[in-house]
Simulated scan of single mutants.
Amino acid sequence: MSATRTPALATGPTAPPDDLPRVAAFRQALGVDALVDVHTHFMPERVLTKVWAYFDAAGPLVGRPWPIAYREEEQRRLDILRGYGVSAFTSLLYPHRPGMARWLNDWAADFAARTPDCLHSATFFAEPEAAEDVRRALAQGARVFKCHVQVGGFDPNDPWLDPVWGLLADSGVPVVTHCGSGPAPGAFTGPAPIAALLARHPRLRLVVAHLGMPEYEEFLTLAERHAGVMLDTTMAFTPFVESEAPFPRTALPRLAALGDRILLGTDFPNIPYAYADALTSLEATGLGREWLRAVCRDNGVRVFGL
């Protein structure tokens, strides 16, 4: 299986009109030469093809039309990110059934080896082999994990995962976790399961994806209570999300106060708008240049020791 062939395509646009000047202007305004994006997706071809087909069909976990803006072959997607000045990014993967995590992790290890600017990513599923899969991925050099409670359909407090969380807490490796109930709720999404998890593993470095959309304020509360909890900005504040799950403007001061624990995320390439729109939507919050610079570069540099 070649990772650089173009996946079979169904419908939807290719990359949006060139927005390189917009991203460059954003970086120039912040006074940074690079961005760190902790929430991007690179996957084996056959997996990505199925993910894109699910979005094309507006599957139950999507719930609305969702055209893929960057429907390109792998090398082109890498070139686009690098052209935007993204100096470090992830290859977040997530299994939807048992038996997938190990071979996804092996693919991600190979991808990281041939893609030096990718933060070596890994994943796990609630299954008997979970702890061994995580030990193996850590030994391979994983620097960030993805836990997708919505797609996986598992309870983060499943007993099979207890040793996993212990390993990750001990290692200090961050876990980007889709645990909010957007865009559609799952059986175990929402703040309550994560609050229970953090009560048992308070040292976890948990990155709540999408700012916890739509339970923004509840996940802000968890971050305020637990020093290891961070949040990523994936899709937040964009018109696409604000139309259905707006971030409460009264909570902006709380987001500002957590400025050292907010990380840039975009969901590239699986977004229905231009990459620059994600950046300008953050700018429109009015939280200021220093907050934006920390979110878009400095915090990622610190968290991952770049």
Results as ranks from 00 to 15, higher is better:
P185V: 04
G186P: 00
G186V: 01
G186N: 00
A187L: 15
F188I: 06
G190P: 13
G190F: 11
G190T: 12
G190W: 10
A192L: 11
A192F: 04
P193L: 10
P193K: 12
P193H: 08
P193G: 07
I194P: 13
I194T: 13
I194L: 14
A195I: 01
A195D: 10
A196I: 03
A196V: 07
L197I: 11
L198D: 13
A199N: 08
A199S: 14
R200N: 02
P202F: 00
P202I: 00
R203F: 04
R203S: 13
L204I: 00
R205T: 15
L206Q: 11
V207D: 05
V207P: 03
V208F: 01
V208H: 00
V208T: 14
A209P: 01
A209Y: 00
H210I: 05
L211Y: 03
L211N: 02
M213P: 00
P214A: 04
P214H: 02
E215D: 10
E215S: 09
E215H: 03
E215Y: 06
Y216R: 00
E217N: 05
E217A: 15
L220I: 14
L220H: 05
L220Y: 06
T221Y: 06
L222E: 09
A223D: 08
A223I: 02
R225T: 09
R225S: 13
R225K: 14
R225E: 12
R225H: 12
H226M: 10
H226P: 01
A227L: 09
G228R: 11
V229D: 02
V229L: 03
M230C: 14
M230H: 14
M230P: 02
D232C: 07
T233V: 10
T233K: 05
T233P: 08
M235Q: 09
F237M: 13
F237H: 11
T238Y: 12
F240C: 00
V241E: 01
S243A: 15
S243H: 14
E244K: 09
A245F: 15
A245G: 01
P246C: 05
P246D: 06
F247P: 06
F247K: 02
F247T: 04
T250R: 14
A251C: 06
R254P: 09
R254N: 08
A257T: 09
A257N: 09
L258I: 12
L258C: 08
L258E: 00
D260M: 12
D260Y: 06
R261W: 01
I262L: 15
L264M: 14
L264E: 11
T266R: 10
F268L: 05
N270A: 11
N270V: 13
I271R: 00
I271G: 00
I271A: 01
Y273L: 12
Y273V: 09
Y273W: 15
A274R: 15
A274N: 10
A274V: 02
A276Y: 03
A276W: 11
A276G: 04
D277S: 08
A278Q: 14
